[in-house]
Design a protein around this nucleic acid. Structure first.
Lengths: 194, 194, 194, 194
DNA sequence: CATGAATGAGAGTTCATTCAT
DNA sequence: CATGAATGAACTCTCATTCAT
């Protein structure tokens, strides 16, 4: 462990992320990354064989972070997940700008697409497990925990997308009612039993 | 007959859409558009002063189509909306690839971002009106029709995003259970009354 | 005489002159001329076969004006000539900006170069005739009237060049002393006789 | 040895000068410069950020050369200055074609214009100092040494302009009589005293 | 007469990439 | 390890010019 030069690589990746969000995928250049990192373009090529490789390593980094975050999330803490999601839901969300830029670029790069897809599957699975331990039984017969995970994740991403595009999107109100909805849902099972 | 050149502009826009999806936003070039349209690059510039203007007109075209689609949707037809959404939910969805590419590019172009945001607001509103006429009263107290529209739209986009990234995403199953969930939701009001 | 459409041609030439001075020779375009003249580019081509032809006609127009001016100048009126020269000597001189732009372009167009050269020869000749009628005999033996005309013309153009390049060029002072110099010169003949 | 690339920049500038004179300012392209220099266009852009910057550096080079020439000129050597001026006075004068092309382009570029203006001011000053040490006192009362410098410089540039435009311009004769005129002028002071 | 649509060659510029040092 | 010089292909965009109407 403790590679002194390993820093450089991940430092460059961090700079690349910032460049990607600042300039947008269409104007993302290695020169900009090099400038932000304070190195020459040659140095970039020393660490990454090609621009594409930097991209792939960047995506891998994001996937690793996601995985680590998922691992740290304890069960029964739906609130934690929702808070995290809400905090990333804004008009200027660095995270979602980065993510959606990568999604757009993934349409031409199967490796990136696969990595992002896998990350998403993991998130779905983690979410469904949280819900599973929260509810024990699905509040609605015919809707599996797997689907609940997918739906909730879709909502989180969908809301982020809406917030990114609408300056006046009612983030607070929507998340409040969304959480209320989840709570109510938790009580349905009982009612159905009656 | 009539106006042979009246077609040109919208024809070019159609070609531009295809190029955008085929090449991706990062490799989207006017040369490619010109080739696909069978005209010279100069012709593109005759009709659209700049690449950015072509982009803006392209987005406007999508917004107009969305608006027209919304206008044609009759009330009480939640099934129609869901079918349309589901049909656009796939690993190769032309529509969502195009949409998400534009979203990514909108981060650097406020005009595009505003247009897309407005389109989304209109879709939210249309959806909430459909639900409003379907349910009369919200199935869950504390969750407004406005929020239902937002949430359902978020789900549709979120699911499309998932399907785009995962080759084996269970589209059928998820939509089936999603529709089932909506139907069950429609019966909650009554139960709550008890 | 009185060609109603002859207007158009000379009007376009006037607009072309303005464009040439405003945009500079390197950015001089027929589109700009057309816009300034309020016509389409096609109309320019109706009147002038090519851009080069417009240029040649433009130069011809300037030469014609010069000739007319020379013809109107009466003898013995060195003051008139100097006043005219001085009035055209400034940092923003339309006339000399136009003239020098044409000179620069003449290096690649022998026809233009010949026309400008002929114009200059005529000016030299006119000036030497004025001086000849003013002095009767050359104030300095060994300097012909032809050379005086050339030298004075060179001074006029050289001063204009200096004024064009130096914002704070002392136009007033220089012309004052230049005129004084000419007057003193007129008295030399007599002194030499002594 | 040493700095093989230190040459590149000034080499490119030399090639640019030649291109400018050969093609004229309106057809001056970086492509042509690159070809003449035997490098790619990218190399040009590596050394000069833009075409404009190359232009500015080119002008600066000319100004530096002018300054160096002025510095090397010893006093009392009016002949040297006149010889140099005459040698540059011809129908094909590389120097004056280059200079006038830059003057024409300076109308749209204040930085170039300022540089050329300053160069001219320095030349004026140098010339007036030469005359001052040659004559001690102005041959004509009321005409300052500053003005003599300006007038002689104007003549030199004005004659060059005439020679550029007239294939049969009498360069020899004119310069001969011009030099004679200067010599005679030198004797006026004494005569006036009588 | 004049226009507007279209062209194609070529302009300036940028970029990912290479390589000697 | 890292750099800076160089490349060459590709990009956006402009322009003089043509031509059917």
């Amino acid at each position: 462990m403790a590679k002194p030069n390993g820093m450089s690589k991940s430092e460059i990746i961090q700079c690349a992320k910032e460049c990607l969000v600042e300039k947008g995928i269409e104007n993302f250049t290695l020169r900009a990354v090099a400038e932000k990192a304070g190195v020459t373009q040659g140095t970039i090529y020393y660490h990454f064989r090609t621009k594409e490789q930097l991209f792939i390593d960047l995506v891998q980094d994001i996937c690793d972070n996601s995985w680590q975050e998922i691992s740290q999330t304890r069960e029964n803490v739906i609130e934690q997940a929702l808070d995290s999601a809400k905090s990333r839901c804004s008009y200027d969300s660095f995270f979602h700008k980065l993510f959606l830029s990568l999604v757009a670029s993934s349409f031409n790069n199967e490796e990136i697409r696969r990595k992002l897809g896998e990350m998403m599957r993991n998130e779905n699975k983690a979410l469904s497990e949280i819900l599973s331990s929260l509810w024990v039984e699905s509040p609605i017969k015919g809707v599996s925990f797997e689907t609940w995970g997918i739906l909730f994740n879709a909502i989180v991403d969908g809301l982020a997308l809406q917030a990114l595009l609408q300056k006046d999107f009612p983030i607070e109100k929507t998340y409040e009612e969304f959480e209320h909805f989840i709570k109510e849902l938790s009580t349905f099972k009982g009612k159905e039993d009656n």
